[in-house]
Design a protein around this nucleic acid. Structure first.
Lengths: 132, 132
DNA sequence: TGGCTTATCGCAAACAGCCGCAATAGTGGT
DNA sequence: ACCACTATTGCGGCTGTTTGCGATAAGCCA
């Protein structure tokens, strides 16, 4: 089932704006900010409001098509959900970001699930610290 | 060495505003938002600007006197650095927050240090997920 | 005590992101 | 092809937080 059908199946509609956000996400290899997407879309379609981009990212996330991650700045990064799940390390002093195999975070996730009944999403926020 | 001396030792100054932020942090038992502090101070000293509170929290953090933690909303929470270090769980659906013994996060921290040379601060961001 | 340096201040404007509103436009049914 | 329903849009305004600015005042020395 394609995106269009899945949207309609949950009572959503496929609009020009939505398709543009989707395309921007597809074209972007890695994490993109909402601003990035908005700017890129507005280059060709200046009438499209940034808030529309934000709302569409939210909507597509509810559908499980994209996810977002918080880094150490206050800017949210978005990417397709079908991409390889991974954690993030970000260095507080030099700002470098690196990805992390999700398996490394599994033991903690399991521990939180078993001992605290908490299903943690450890990829949701970057881990902050100091790299070498 | 008291706060005043430590401030001056690193070229900082003790101002009325800074002392008020300090006092507010001392009075607050747990995590407080900058807004909380600003509002409380401004009740008696309306001329003090919120940005001054933010800058002072930053300054005191640089001195190692306070730290901040990111929860899932975009609001930063502050607390004295001498308080018991702990992790945070926050539920994405009901919003409940609970604290976590820091020891639980140690194995992951050790792993990141040993395998990736990354000194992680796992208390810096709350762990997001779904509680029972 | 008075003067000098400069950290810090208050203010105003910018930032990413969010929300309510009335107008617009997908969509499913006829 | 048209209609009715309502999800979605653009807009304006608001949030919490950060920044650049010129003015103020803390701290040091004479």
């Amino acid at each position: 089932m394609g995106i269009d059908e899945r949207l309609r199946a949950s009572g959503m509609r496929m609009t020009v704006q939505r398709r543009l956000v989707l395309e921007a996400l597809q074209r972007a290899r890695h994490h993109v900010t909402a601003e990035d997407i908005a700017t890129r879309i507005r280059a060709r379609h200046p009438q499209i409001d940034p808030s529309t981009v934000y709302r569409n990212l939210e909507a597509l996330e509810a559908l499980g098509y994209v996810t977002h991650t918080h880094f150490d700045d206050r800017v949210t990064r978005w990417h397709r959900a079908d991409a390889q799940r991974h954690g993030h390390l970000v260095c507080r002093s030099c700002g470098a970001e690196q990805e992390l195999p999700i398996g490394l975070l599994e033991p903690l996730a399991r521990r939180l699930r078993d001992d605290h009944g908490f299903r943690a999403d450890l990829a949701h926020s970057a881990i902050v610290g100091i790299c070498k």
